[in-house]
Amino acid sequence: MSDIGILERDTEGQFGDYIALLKPRVMSLVVFTAFVGLVVAPVGVHPFVAFVAVLFIALGGGASGALNMWYDADIDRLMRRTQSRPIPAGRVTEGEALGFGLALAGISCVMLALAANIFAGLFLAFTIFFYVVVYTIWLKRATPQNIVIGGAAGAFPPMIGWAVATGGISMESLAMFAIIFLWTPPHFWSLALFMKDDYSNAGVPMLTVTHGRRVTRGQILLYTLILAPVAVGTAFTSIGGSVYLAVALVLNALFIRGAVRLWRRDDAAALAEKYATEKRFFYFSLLYLFGHFLALLAEKGLSLFGMGGW
């Protein structure tokens, strides 16, 4: 009939499919942590500039999501959880996702550089490069520590928020980076313990598949133990204070207790109670991260009234 393929495609991407390419749920974490990084910085930012900056940091995160879906379309087709994503479902082509992701990456970096400062724009560009090239293309399919590398990309947003305000990097922004970076492995591996994704089909070396669940439980405990002193130690930087210290002590004690519990059981015990402890640990990990960043916000809020800090 016509050789214009677009007229013959029965399923076509709607607006919502392009939103789905941006991974909105990952974006919400980016928005929150970037916002906290920006607000706790010692330099004030005009509220509208702060809003625009967080928006474009989130858009940059969305762009890396789209580029990730472009590159991973082949394995997304193989896994049940990801089969309904726009590309495997056939509503968006790989080329469209690539173009969409690249365009948004360019727009978000340039706009962030113009709204805030050049350094923040370059930092966002580096983050997108790190997530797409270093994590997705290079290391995700090559090493079982892929989650750790991906976690680094997810940990940059508060540093970018801080860079929007200060134009640089400091001890405090590195501390926020370290908290998310070290938190990601326990968070994702506890999910991997009970999600039973078909990663082996897709050829992605997940730690649970390559080294088994026993090793994964040990690694969760290991990262949790390294995380605790970093998270508590942040209390003694200029963004911390007594409120943050109290929150961090409680959350880290509970997190370590949960990790020890996971470590001491085997899969037979976990299966017997349908992975209830693993699920509880996973949901607690969300609360853990949220709690720490909320406490940092609280310290900033208190400092406006002459309280907070040390």
Binding site: G13, Q14, F15, H46, V52
Partner: peptide, 24 residues
């Protein structure tokens, strides 16, 4: 139509952002 209307709103939003940034 849905796609185009959505894109239109996004573009209007972008104009508002740039205008606001300019004022600030």
């Amino acid at each position: 139509f849905g796609r185009n209307a959505g894109l239109g709103l996004v573009l209007i939003g972008f104009v508002v952002l740039v205008f606001g940034l300019t004022i600030v």
